[in-house]
Design a protein around this nucleic acid. Structure first.
Lengths: 201, 201
DNA sequence: GCCTAGACTGACCGTACGTTCATTTGACTG
DNA sequence: CAGTCAAATGAACGTACGGTCAGTCTAGGC
């Protein structure tokens, strides 16, 4: 009984890891059951002994990946140090964790929705539109820096982060994680960003 | 000649708008040529008179949508007002623009990579993991607020934005928009975020 | 009022991929 | 060593969907 469960758990783990490797290599669209089977070195039918559908397989693979990352974050926490230092440590820890899961996260963060290969004409065209927008915002920030209105900061970095906060606000709303009116989100982003880039006193 | 071009342009516009509506309703995965044809009230073959492949169609539809939004942003800019006020206006304008393109953006921002229906058991499970993580980060921030180490700010909002900056850093790197070492990004995020939530002097 | 060009149609085709299941394998038992 | 049975296999199936093309329709010229 226990032995069989060990074997089963081992198989499941093998398959889930293979699924994440395939996802990382071929993207969400290119992740087929055939490829996962080949990567896990089992027959396609075997996968269906452990997962009802392809969706269930992908679901389990992603969920396990996320759970591991969340657990790692919490494990790195130390509530005994001063608040600001604690926050700082947590941010740095999450950077480290994300970096070591890059390949897996890649499929969840980019490529994903558009099945866009970055190195394709289509991909480059999207990037041109996006980069043009970032350039514009960065130039506005650079102007503010030149006039001493905000502190010295990499304007492209700041422009990108602002964009992330903006789409993040929309995402938060769409995910139903925010019930407050849109205006208060907008004000909060203005506040957070402007303070973050404020000129040194 | 001119008349034919007008007709052609009209058709292309109709089809692209239909494509965006289908994308908004069914998500990227559920966007089929049959559905776009039905939505545009033309036969499937007609679409192939104007676009070589499905990818080209989707590409054109998304690109046009993005370009319109970028153009609207720049149109709202006023370089004659003081820098901080100018940045503030731009942020608010982008909130407005994003809000009026919600349905279209939805497919690009969420759902997308996982073809996850938010109202499914799978979707809820992802959200539980994610929300748990946000709760943890928010509790750390709440602790800092209670101790007067940072200013009064909605801790869930701040936790979410921090998460956006973190995944944003990774995204920026994967998009090859940043060449700087990971560590300097991490430091810059710490700086931007901690200043943004800093206690009032 | 016929004729032609070309816009438009939608039935059809080929393929990729998720899922199934009859058959084989091999570990354990008596 | 024969028998048993669950685990594993992979060929075969069904279907959804991108793409095609032979046929139909219509506007404009003569």
């Amino acid at each position: 009984m226990t032995k069989e469960e060990v074997i089963k758990e081992y198989r499941v783990r093998e398959i889930l890891e293979a699924a994440r490797r395939v996802m990382a290599r071929y993207g969400m669209q290119g992740t087929t059951v055939d490829r996962v089977a080949e990567e896990a070195k089992v027959a396609k039918g075997t996968i269906y002994l452990y997962f009802d559908t392809k969706d269930a397989l992908v679901h389990a693979a992603v969920l396990e990946g996320l759970r591991e990352m969340v657990a790692e974050t919490i494990a790195s926490d130390d509530a005994s140090i001063p608040p600001l230092e604690r926050i700082r440590k947590l941010i740095l820890a999450q950077f480290r964790i994300q970096a070591s899961n890059q390949d897996f996260l890649k499929t969840l963060i980019i490529g994903n929705s558009l099945d866009i290969e970055l190195e394709s004409e289509a991909g480059r065209e999207y990037m041109r539109v996006y980069a043009g927008h970032l350039d514009f915002m960065a130039s506005v920030l650079q102007d503010a820096i030149d006039r001493g209105a905000i502190r010295q900061i990499d304007p492209h970095f700041a422009a990108f982060m602002l964009g992330e906060m903006l789409t993040g606000s929309l995402r938060r709303r769409l995910l139903k994680l925010a019930s407050s009116p849109l205006e208060s989100d907008a004000e909060a982003v203005v506040e957070l960003f402007l303070r973050g880039i404020a000129a040194l006193p």
